[in-house]
């Protein structure tokens, strides 16, 4: 009995301790996850994307209006690229300012650092990414009736472009609402020469009016190169006849191409009603004349 009493007391103390522990967890500062990534679009200026989110249960919730600073190579005022504030998606994008061209050109690899401001809800968070400059080139080869896409990935080392082997690359055809993989695989890996060759078998794809479409290749969140993107227009598609909707008389055409039946109907009604109104105006004139004659 004494043992049972002791056990009950122990249980009560443990329950109390657990309750305090849960409360303490609730009151702890929320944790913000900040990430910075590098993006090199085809023929455009590279940019950095900062994302801020919070894990709530099993979901990641984007954090809006998180303020921070992005630096290049070191966290110093002279290396400050730009101040950021995240949008409703918890994102902020910055382009590398032209003032940093000398710094950018000086090395083949750079470190980008983001530091967020501490606030009432979150402590200051720092995140960084180390990026080596890379480029992707797309080439096409037509041999023995077979079309091949050659994708070459190069990285900058000591001011020279060197082949980058063992890099995972995605290769696809750009369509209106997304990308269509060029072959059976989604992802290809470059060889020692930094190249990957894919046989192209999608012969009957519709292209534009001249049969063109765009082949794209990119690295996705690569730990060394980030997100590097390339594209090449090829004339392998089936040419599409342009559909000129505006030249046909229809309800959705321009005003001058209204359907004849609609024009007939509308102008008959308008003519009928306004013809009657004109007749009535003439009657008013007639009444005026009759009044003057009576004088």
């Amino acid at each position: 009995m004494q043992l049972l009493k002791n056990k009950s007391g122990l249980l009560a103390i443990l329950s109390l301790a657990f309750a305090f522990s849960v409360k303490a967890q609730d009151e702890a500062t929320r944790t913000m996850l900040v990430d910075i990534s590098y993006h090199m679009p085809a023929n455009r200026v590279p940019y950095l994307k900062v994302t801020a989110k919070e894990k709530v249960g099993r979901n990641f919730i984007p954090l809006k209006d998180i303020i921070g600073k992005v630096y290049i190579n070191e966290e110093a005022e002279s290396s400050l690229l730009e101040d950021i504030r995240t949008d409703s998606k918890g994102e902020s994008r910055i382009f590398i300012p032209a003032a940093f061209k000398t710094v950018w050109d000086a090395s083949g690899s750079h470190q980008f650092i983001v530091v967020t401001e501490a606030g009432e809800e979150f402590e200051s968070v720092q995140s960084e990414v180390e990026v080596t400059k890379a480029k992707i080139e797309i080439d096409t080869v037509y041999e023995n009736g077979v079309r091949n896409i050659i994708v070459k990935v190069s990285e900058q080392q000591s001011g020279e472009w060197q082949p980058a082997g063992d890099v995972e690359v995605k290769i696809a055809i750009q369509r209106l609402l997304g990308n269509l993989p060029v072959g059976e695989e989604d992802i290809y890996t470059t060889d020692e020469e930094g190249t990957v060759s894919v046989e192209f078998t999608r012969d009957s794809l519709p292209g534009d009016e001249e049969g063109n479409y765009v082949i794209v290749a990119w690295t996705e969140d690569h730990e060394q190169f980030g997100n590097v993107f390339a594209e090449k227009t090829v004339n392998w598609g089936v040419a599409q006849e342009p559909q000129d909707f505006s030249s046909r008389r229809s309800l959705w055409a321009t005003g001058t191409q209204a359907p004849v039946w609609l024009l007939g109907l509308a102008f008959s009604i308008i003519g009928g009603v306004w013809g009657t109104l004109i007749y009535l105006f003439i009657q008013i004139v007639q009444i005026r004349k009759l009044g003057k004659t009576a004088d």
Binding site: L277, Q283, G291, K292
Partner: peptide, 28 residues
């Protein structure tokens, strides 16, 4: 309305016009 003399022809034209308008205004 200075020209309105309430003569029979004026009233006839006026009543007819109001009747036509009464019919016309409903579909419009």
């Amino acid at each position: 309305g200075g020209f309105w003399k309430s003569n029979a022809r004026q009233e006839r034209i006026n009543q007819k016009a109001v009747l036509i308008l009464s019919i016309l205004i409903i579909p419009v």
